[in-house]
């Protein structure tokens, strides 16, 4: 039982958990996974119906995402023992992860904007498109530019 031998810089050791806690977490993760699967199959069922409601499907997908975040929390806090560490270490890992909030929002926003351009032809201010609208005299240099 010579845990203290790891490093002289370690001030104290959190108490050893029991294996009971590990198995409890295993069951939580399993149940969450089964619920996710049930919701995933529900989405398929809705898709097969006559009028699939986009809002309902989006809502179910949101619920599945929240359940996934709960699973991630249990893996990190219990299996990786981050929950047993001191606040300093928890914060040095958790705070940089907040960058993901904007990272995800910005890029999905970008993706749906791209779809909007694709569907509405709002992005058709391409050189070819403009060339068609202009007089022949103006087209020549523009088309040349398109080929470059």
């Amino acid at each position: 039982m010579s845990q203290h031998a790891v490093s002289s810089e370690i001030t104290f050791h959190p108490p050893l958990g029991t294996t009971k806690r590990i198995w409890k977490t295993f069951w939580i993760l399993s149940v969450l996974t089964v619920i996710e699967l049930a919701l995933g199959l529900t989405i398929e069922h809705i898709h097969q119906g006559k009028n699939p409601s986009a809002a309902l499907i989006l809502f179910i997908k949101g619920v599945i995402t929240i359940l996934t975040l709960a699973k991630a929390y249990y893996i990190i806090a219990v299996f990786m023992h981050l929950g047993d560490e001191i606040r300093n270490l928890i914060m040095t890992v958790a705070i940089p992860m907040l960058l993901f909030v904007w990272f995800i929002a910005a890029f999905l926003w970008d993706g749906s904007s791209f779809r909007h351009l694709r569907n509405t032809n709002a992005g058709a201010t391409t050189i070819e498109q403009r060339a068609k609208e202009k007089t022949p005299a103006a087209t020549v240099p523009l088309q040349k530019g398109a080929k470059d």
Partner: peptide, 23 residues
């Protein structure tokens, strides 16, 4: 969770110990 067991009054950033209490 067990962070409640952290001894109080430790100066984590004064040197001589890991401020993260880890190797």
């Amino acid at each position: 969770m067990e962070t409640a067991t952290v001894p109080t009054g430790i100066k984590w950033w004064n040197g001589g110990r890991s401020p993260f209490n880890t190797s």
